[in-house]
């Protein structure tokens, strides 16, 4: 039996794109420094070499043009995968992300679809400062018409990339900068993870911890520590914010009666607020304790790494929150 091949999260991005480019000639890539330089985060290594400059395309430094061109290409039947180098730069091209792409189908009465993927390096923990470190998944959460994906493992990067590129709807695909060096099994060819299906990554009976992207390993580490103290935590990797798998969350809460969210975005306007609002609405009678959200403080990300760590969710913060609701 062959050993399972191990792959980094970073390598999984290029692998996931390459698999789709091999099976579908309409898949093309564009962005700053993605072709010859193979990506500033080395997430597009090998793509130019394998697929050539007609399908892997270095663009001028024009975020609006990158996203606008991807929109135009998608409207004519291509499946573009456009890169925004840092997720913070979505603000530069937000008109296209918020006003144009998600509304084209609606405003043409269903006559034009926009099957594109906007990939981006997202999140903090690497000391990149206030304007290169934000976790912005929740920005797009306010916009009907977009789907939002944020994988936590190399296998999910590949499986969710496949589903995102194949989706006929526009997808914001958040690759977490803090996870690029992490490793995991390389999934077999044909691996696809359906959008909107959360993953129960650890089973437990006392508390449900819902996490996303980089907060998944944080939650898992917290769960390990809590197990040593006799607390059984169930950890759910939400994987997608739109569609949001609330059925899995509510089923889990039905079992544990307690809920914690772990969000890298600021507490204000974070995705956990949407999730929790549904749980308290539809699952109020399931709960035996208040719900706690562990999220970043409502401040810009500091440049100093010690301060940054204080702002974003940590294992300690998660453990403390779990203890509070378990001992309620």
């Amino acid at each position: 039996m062959a050993e399972t091949e191990i792959i980094t999260y970073r390598e999984a991005v290029a692998e996931g794109i390459a698999r789709e480019m091999r099976r579908d000639p309409t898949v093309v890539c564009l962005g700053e420094d993605i072709a010859a330089a193979e990506g500033v985060f080395k997430t597009t290594v090998g793509l130019l070499k394998e697929f050539g400059p007609r399908r892997v395309w270095d663009t001028p430094i024009s975020e609006q043009a990158i996203v606008g061109a991807a929109m135009g290409a998608a409207m004519t039947g291509m499946r573009p995968v456009a890169e925004i180098m840092f997720s913070d730069f979505f603000a530069v091209c937000w008109d296209y992300v918020a006003n144009e792409i998600p509304k084209a189908r609606y405003m043409t009465g269903g006559q034009v679809t926009v099957p594109l993927v906007l990939r981006t390096a997202n999140g903090g923990g690497l000391g990149f400062g206030a304007q290169h470190s934000q976790a912005v998944e929740n920005w797009a959460l306010t916009i009907p018409g977009l789907k939002i994906v944020a994988p936590s493992t190399p296998a999910d990067v590949i499986g969710l990339m496949a589903a995102s590129i194949r989706s006929d709807d526009p997808v914001i695909f958040c690759e977490h900068k803090g996870l690029f060096a992490s490793k995991g099994p390389k999934p077999p060819e044909g691996h696809v993870v359906e959008l909107g299906k959360a993953n129960i990554v650890r089973e437990g009976s006392d508390v449900t911890i819902v996490a996303l992207a980089a907060t998944v390993p944080t939650a898992l580490t917290a769960a390990e520590r809590l197990a040593a103290e006799g607390v059984s935590a169930e950890v759910i990797d939400l994987r997608c914010l739109i569609p949001m798998d609330l059925t899995t969350v509510l089923t889990s809460v039905g079992k544990t009666s307690r809920l914690i969210t772990v969000e890298e975005n600021p507490h204000q306007g974070g995705w956990g607020a949407t999730l929790v609002s549904v749980v308290v609405d539809e699952g109020f009678q399931l709960l035996d304790a208040p719900v706690k959200r562990v999220a970043s403080e409502n401040v810009p990300l500091p440049f100093a790494d010690t301060l940054e760590e204080a702002v974003i969710p940590t294992v300690d913060k998660v453990v403390a929150a779990v203890k509070a609701v378990v001992n309620f």
């Binding site: 189908r105 043409t108 679809t113 709807d169 059925t247």
Partner: peptide, 12 residues
């Protein structure tokens, strides 16, 4: 509610 998604959305 029409034409928001191609593939539908459970929440929608």
């Amino acid at each position: 509610f029409n034409h928001v998604y191609v593939e539908g959305s459970p929440d929608l």
